[in-house]
Nucleic acid binder design. Structure first.
Lengths: 126, 126
DNA sequence: AACTTCTACAACCATTTGGTTGTACGTTAG
DNA sequence: CTAACGTACAACCAAATGGTTGTAGAAGTT
């Protein structure tokens, strides 16, 4: 059974970080872990229009950080817990580019024994 | 001796993630770990003007992801290795908001034994 | 059916972003 | 000194962002 981590492409990472680069959106993420809030309920929490919050949710949704689920006439917003993991993976892939190996995993345990300094970044151009 | 992790404020995190939300800028980060490239050398690598690259570097600099160091008439760009750590910390702080405790550290080891489900987010309202 | 609630989406506007070119200045090389 | 190089920065422009209001539809409520 291969783990198959699905290398994230540039556009995905762009959307991910862009979605995270806004205080309101990060706050929405924190609020919606339980998946109990509708967009309307959410919107009550912020000093802006419903439509504005709707747009923020859309940005989060396109980034895969959040999913909506219909429940009657409401649309419940739920934060995807794995999404933060994908953000971490993006950081890991960034870091791994200069930590020698390019293919090291998104896993937590760093396990950094020999501090393998690598002087040949080879295919790093363009 | 207290660890004192310096809770990152919203603006800092905004700048951090915004800086990371661009393919060119992430590529610059990967290239400048060795700190050997001037802005001019860097600019040669991209299909855009010198000034454009200069602006990207400025964005990275304001986010604390990169530092410039004069060397003669050149300005060498160097990626701050700790910066990715700060991004990780930001993710951790996000996640910790729904992992029960709000004050858990930026440390890697999750150490999640009892899956402490917490039903009272208390001070989570706006 | 009539009404209210929640959502979706279009149109609009101000500001920011990401790019351009042009100019000015400091530093090194001839 | 003069020329070339590397940088900084201003001015400008198109497109994207983050907000607004307004309209319309879908789903409950009475």
């Amino acid at each position: 059974m291969v783990v198959e981590v699905d290398e994230l492409n540039d556009e995905t990472v762009d959307r991910l970080f862009h979605a995270l680069a806004d205080t309101t959106r990060r706050d929405i993420l924190r609020r919606c872990v339980r998946g109990e809030l509708s967009v309307s309920r959410l919107a009550e929490a912020y000093p802006m229009s419903f439509a504005a919050v709707q747009k923020h949710v859309a940005v989060l949704e396109r980034a895969g950080l959040v999913a909506k689920q219909r429940s009657g006439r409401e649309q419940l917003v739920r934060t995807d817990p794995d999404a933060v993991g994908r953000a971490r993976q993006a950081l890991d892939e960034l870091e791994s580019a200069w930590r020698g190996r390019v293919d090291r995993m998104a896993c937590l345990l760093a396990e950094d024994p020999g501090s393998e300094e690598n002087d040949t970044p080879e295919g790093t151009e363009r």
